[in-house]
Lab assay of single mutants.
Amino acid sequence: MIINNLKLIREKKKISQSELAALLEVSRQTINGIEKNKYNPSLQLALKIAYYLNTPLEDIFQ
């Protein structure tokens, strides 16, 4: 099972779900679904998340 630290990292960087969704060009519901482990992001989306949060991919999804 993948450990998902997206919410923790996003909140630590003081970025809202809506702000991150806008940067990634996805819906806020997509971010919410990823954070609640209801949706697994594509590799492309996971890499974009890591880029915009300036955090290694391995720290977000373990």
Rank of each mutant, 00 (worst) to 15 (best):
K7Q: 10
K36W: 06
L47G: 05
K12E: 11
Y52P: 00
N32D: 15
A21Y: 03
R10E: 01
L23P: 00
N37M: 13
M1N: 11
G33K: 15
L45S: 01
Y51F: 12
A21H: 02
T55S: 08
N40W: 15
S16Y: 03
I60P: 02
P41A: 06
K38F: 13
K12Y: 10
L43G: 06
L45T: 04
N32V: 15
K7M: 07
L8W: 09
I2M: 13
Y39P: 01
S27P: 14
L23F: 13
V26A: 03
A50T: 03
S16K: 08
K14I: 05
L45G: 00
N40V: 15
F61R: 02
E58S: 12
S42W: 06
L24G: 01
G33F: 14
N37I: 04
G33Q: 15
M1C: 15
P41H: 02
I15F: 08
I9R: 02
S16I: 03
K7Y: 07
A22D: 11
G33E: 15
D59A: 11
A50C: 06
P56E: 07
E19G: 09
A46T: 06
L20Q: 00
K36F: 06
N37Q: 13
K13N: 11
K48I: 04
Y51L: 08
E11N: 09
F61S: 02
L53A: 02
L43N: 07
E19Q: 14
V26W: 03
L20M: 06
N40F: 15
K7R: 14
I34F: 05
I34E: 00
L53M: 07
L57K: 04
S16W: 03
Y51C: 09
Q29W: 12
P41C: 10
I9M: 07
I49L: 07
E35W: 01
A50W: 04
F61V: 03
I9K: 02
N4G: 05
R28V: 15
K36T: 15
K36S: 14
I34V: 04
V26E: 03
N37E: 06
I15W: 06
E19Y: 10
A21G: 05
L20K: 00
R10L: 06
L57D: 02
M1P: 12
K38I: 14
I31H: 01
L47T: 09
L23T: 06
N37V: 04
A50Y: 02
L6V: 07
I49H: 00
L23I: 11
T55M: 08
M1T: 12
L6W: 00
L24T: 11
Y39N: 06
Y51N: 06
R28H: 08
L45E: 03
K48L: 08
L6C: 05
T55G: 02
N40C: 15
I3W: 09
E11Q: 12
E58M: 08
A46N: 01
Y52R: 04
I60E: 02
A50D: 00
S18N: 11
S18T: 12
L6H: 01
E19M: 12
T55H: 06
I15R: 03
N4D: 03
V26M: 04
S16C: 04
E35K: 02
N4S: 05
Q44V: 11
E19K: 13
E58I: 09
R28L: 15
K7I: 05
A46C: 13
N5S: 07
N5P: 03
K7E: 08
A22L: 11
M1Q: 12
I49W: 03
Y51E: 08
I49E: 00
Q29S: 14
L47A: 09
I15G: 01
I34K: 01
D59I: 10
T55E: 09
K7A: 10
Q62Y: 12
P56M: 05
E35Y: 03
M1L: 13
K14T: 05
E35Q: 00
I31A: 00
F61M: 04
N54V: 05
Q44I: 11
K7L: 06
Q44Y: 12
L53W: 02
M1E: 10
K13C: 13
K14Q: 13
I60F: 05
P41N: 01
I49F: 03
L57S: 03
I9D: 00
E25W: 08
I9P: 01
T55L: 06
K48A: 10
L47H: 08
S42I: 04
N54A: 13
N4A: 03
Q17A: 08
L24D: 00
L23M: 14
K38Q: 14
L45H: 02
P41E: 03
E58H: 13
